[in-house]
Write a protein that binds this DNA or RNA. Sequence first.
DNA 1: TTTAATAGTGTAAAAAATACACATTATATT
DNA 2: AATATAATGTGTATTTTTTACACTATTAAA
Lengths: 218, 218
Amino acid sequence: MLSFFTVDCLIFTFHEGKLKVLLTERNEYPYRDWWAMPGYFVDKQEEMEEAVDRIAYEHTGLKNIYLEQLAALAGLKRHPEGRVLTVAYMALVRYEDVKNKVKPVTNYMRQAQWFDITEVPELAFDHNDILQLGLKKLKRNLNYSTAPFALLPEKFTLTQLQQIYEAILGESLDKRNFRKRMSNLGYLKELNEYQTGVSYRAARLYKFDKRKFLKLFS
Amino acid sequence: MLSFFTVDCLIFTFHEGKLKVLLTERNEYPYRDWWAMPGYFVDKQEEMEEAVDRIAYEHTGLKNIYLEQLAALAGLKRHPEGRVLTVAYMALVRYEDVKNKVKPVTNYMRQAQWFDITEVPELAFDHNDILQLGLKKLKRNLNYSTAPFALLPEKFTLTQLQQIYEAILGESLDKRNFRKRMSNLGYLKELNEYQTGVSYRAARLYKFDKRKFLKLFS
DNA sequence: TTTAATAGTGTAAAAAATACACATTATATT
DNA sequence: AATATAATGTGTATTTTTTACACTATTAAA
């Protein structure tokens, strides 16, 4: 009837063409010294959504981020002390907003680090499963989702957008067809601005037009 | 840190061309006399999946049914006695397997009844929200899902299949285009058998070829 | 000026989605 | 036996979307 109650937060970002996930090194039993997703107990008088916001904030310094509920995991054997029911959430953040802010904020974790999603070690608890659930959900919803734009800076290039699609789908896409498809979507705004600071032809920048997106999907 | 822990089970079936949901009338506070989804506390030593199976079994007499986790709801104000975290599951059952078996099996509920999804009353707790989540998920996943075939008898007509699509999508579809699309899927097996007991031209029966489906989607 | 690295672009073919209406079949009714 | 009823089953032309495929343009650095 009664269960311990935690939330875990699968935090993704996008940097240098790669999809990354934020992991923390545990400083507490069980799984001391293992990498794990940020997560902890929900306080007695705290709403679940507040708890996720809090934990994500404590690790990224960001509020009002894109959050989606992924799954509840309640196995009796998840934790040696008895049932610990966890609700896993997925958060997507912009790397620019978050760089240098990433840090563990409690002493039950040692350090926090971004891992390329293709290079994630064996994680504590069932956290590898949760990661797979998150990737699966991103993939399944990709075509009706604002997820890519939550990961990108406000102004981005089509190559960056394509890299996110490729990382989420796990396959490479044809550049011309991808661009054609994106411009047919109707919610990308072409800017008269270009990349700076690159030692090759600068790419045009685009913006996500949220109003047009919402008009199309509701 | 600690929370009460329940599961709720959103049980759908399909009968007489309509998508139906199983509701029970509560005989216990809070929400005594209200209609609600079957749900109850998870026992201390019971796995969550066993609990859902048990509750669904107690209401439908069926084991090994199609189950999907929908969402976890944990609002502090869901229940007057304090936080009751519930994990909602969706179950899809065949009406033929279940008719006359539907019954409440505990005394905290009075009767169980199938409701057309367009005629569901105001429900206890946040159960109307859960129903909407279930329908949304069915809709979103419809094209890659075995859900319609979990609702249909083993042998079914294309009209029945179309009715399920229409109920889930909430719109009517063109018969010829629907049939063309279905036969292009590659996992419907046309039988040399026909409906019986109808007072008009009998429709051809089809079967779902699960092996072909799995080959295509994995 | 050359090299390196990435941006940016078009077309033809195939596949999928859409719009649309009537003849067919089985049973029940008279 | 004829008729009414109720649902089944079918084809085509059009539009839209998806796919396959390779070279020129631009910028900065060497």
